[in-house]
Simulated assay, not measured.
Amino acid sequence: MRALSQVKPALLFLLLVCGSATASPLADSVVRASPIDEVAAQYPAMMSQGIREGLKQSGRVEPFVANTISSVVSNAFSVAEIRAQVVEDLDRGLSDEQMNSVLAWYETPLAEKISRAEVAASSPAAWKEVEAGASALQDKYEGSERAKLFARFDRASRATESAVDTTIAVQLGLASAMAAFNGNKGPTFEQLQQKIENQRGMLRGMVAQQVYDGYLYTYQDFTSSELRDYIEFLESDAGSAFTRVVTNSIQRSITDPVESVGSQLVRFLNPG
């Protein structure tokens, strides 16, 4: 599970195929107002990096081959398609009243400030800062109201749940790459997939701490009162529906292409 270290929950929890031509302008406006566009844009690079580093650390392939495979992986994920799927799913999954409530929230000064913080925390440059500052932030907020609010935040945002799902998607991408590289000499993709799914409980324990570290880092400049206001939005009828639809939509958009990665790699590794 070495690629796990390359999956950054500071990005994963912020949050979150084509065919949105009939989606309402209201759903599109909600996506534009939220940080979804900018955060989702990080997903293809994140998936590619996780798989590239996992391949390199495995010692089974040369760095050049790992880099080339990661390019194939990156091209399998489309930011435009992820966005289109989110817009379409919001249009189908939320009422106009709910979407107007979400839009009203994201147009508030607090929501705009939170969105900027979440986008900043999703950038690759922030990942090392999260890891480097984790211990200090844990000590600083131990026993504080901010620390106690995390359980509510995690439930309402589906943070750890989404992080585990995306971690598994990266692991499946790595498994697909390794199965293609090994040919008939190793476990099949289906066998590797089952093995990864069996480790979901272990992954949750490992990811949960990273999600907490990301939470402390991302919202460190917000007061406890501001965090409570944000959590109350996430717990509201509209906020809860929005979070559920967005996280499910993004997870499907990044999981569905994984199996196709293997067939593309087979053609790449065995031309002709």
Rank of each mutant, 00 (worst) to 15 (best):
R116Y: 10
S115M: 00
F153I: 14
V73I: 09
R83F: 08
E88P: 05
F64A: 15
T68P: 01
P124F: 10
L137M: 14
K140R: 12
G133T: 07
V79R: 09
S144F: 00
V73R: 03
F64H: 10
V87E: 05
E81P: 07
Q138W: 12
Q98H: 13
E142R: 11
V87F: 04
L90R: 01
A125C: 00
K113A: 05
A134L: 03
Q98G: 04
S78V: 07
S70W: 02
V65R: 07
G133Q: 12
S122E: 08
E107H: 14
F77C: 11
R83D: 09
E62R: 15
Y106A: 02
K148E: 12
R116I: 06
I82W: 10
A76W: 02
Q85F: 12
A80E: 15
S122A: 02
R83L: 01
T68V: 12
A76S: 10
K128S: 10
K140W: 10
E142K: 15
G143S: 09
V87H: 02
D91C: 07
A76Q: 13
A76G: 14
L103K: 02
V73S: 05
K128G: 12
A66H: 04
A117I: 05
T68G: 03
A111K: 04
I82M: 12
V72A: 06
D91Y: 09
E62P: 02
D96Y: 06
W105V: 04
D91T: 11
S71N: 11
L110D: 01
D154T: 11
D96C: 11
I69C: 09
Q138P: 07
S122W: 05
Y141E: 07
V73H: 02
P124M: 00
S70T: 04
Q138T: 13
A125I: 02
D89E: 15
A76H: 11
A156C: 00
E142C: 11
I114Q: 02
L149P: 03
E81C: 15
S70C: 03
L94R: 06
R92T: 15
A132D: 15
V102E: 00
Q138H: 13
A120Y: 00
